[in-house]
């Protein structure tokens, strides 16, 4: 048991140094981006995505190994279904080795959509501490098939290291008295939230409904939500005039 424990902590340390050594910006989003790169590489995956939820369960921070993966991740929130949403609700990993199986009826909208994107298997890991749910790490693979035992261990260590990284950063900011998040770099999501505020005013609707409208529009037009948000902020897209 002691030997096992030592091996596990050596593995955890190795994963942490892989994350630290990956390229990427400093800050929260940079950390998440590095986790995605390491996950994609170490797990022989098409890509990986990390989402940090706000207290209200919104996608607060996110990163993905590339824009296609980011879109697959966002899709779950558009459709309101998918393995990552199940992982966070059930508080345990959801491992779908073959998306063409029962997953097709479990997530009738999501599963066909990601398969169309060339994904054969999805593995979702909750980022959590005790009773608190922080977010999720999702790994997308092209070929159907389960994660090996060693890969599963790596994925779990990656999830743990992500939580640790985020919480250590939070503790540091708390010590500096910098806890309001105003100095955070939330990456391209800043534009998304600005657009949300604009659509709220354009349509005279509640804030959360504004996001639903934007997601529905992006889905119907087959566009990335980030691009839709950018157009709204640049005022080349207005919801009070242009939307059906």
């Amino acid at each position: 048991m002691v030997a096992d424990g030592d091996r596990a902590s050596a593995r955890a340390a190795a994963i942490r140094s892989l994350i630290a050594g990956a390229p990427g910006a400093p800050g929260h989003v940079g950390l998440l981006g590095r986790v995605c790169l390491v996950a994609a590489r170490e797990l022989a995956a098409l890509g990986a995505a990390v989402t940090v939820l706000t207290g209200d369960g919104l996608r607060g921070l996110s990163a993905a190994s590339d824009p296609v993966i980011e879109r697959l991740e966002e899709l779950q929130f558009t459709l309101g279904e998918g393995p990552c949403i199940d992982a966070i609700e059930s508080r345990r990993p959801v491992l779908i080795a073959d998306l063409s199986g029962p997953a097709m009826s479990r997530w009738p909208a999501y599963a066909p959509a990601v398969r169309e994107g060339g994904v054969g298997a999805v593995f979702a890991f909750p980022l959590q501490v005790g009773a608190a749910r922080l977010g999720m790490l999702d790994v997308f693979r092209r070929q159907p098939g389960p994660l090996s035992e060693a890969e599963l261990e790596i994925a779990l260590h990656l999830a743990d290291a992500t939580v640790e990284g985020l919480l250590d950063r939070q503790e540091e900011e708390g010590r500096r008295g910098d806890t309001d998040g105003l100095a955070w770099d939330v990456g391209n999501r800043a534009q998304l939230y600005q657009a949300q505020g604009m659509v709220m005013i354009q349509l005279g609707i509640a804030l959360d409904e504004a996001l639903v409208r934007m997601r529905a529009y992006a889905f119907a037009e087959d566009r990335r939500l980030d691009d839709v948000a950018r157009d709204i902020v640049n005022r080349t897209l207005r919801f009070d005039l242009d939307t059906p």
Binding site: G60, A131, L134, G181, V186, M200
Partner: peptide, 29 residues
């Protein structure tokens, strides 16, 4: 317990950050 407290703080900070962006959008519009 430490993890839960920090998670709460982190998510609180994130909420603050987001709501300010949303308000910027609303006022800009």
């Amino acid at each position: 317990r430490r993890g839960e407290v920090l998670t709460e703080q982190l998510q609180g900070a994130l909420n603050s950050r987001i709501v300010i962006e949303q308000a910027k959008g609303a006022v800009a519009q």
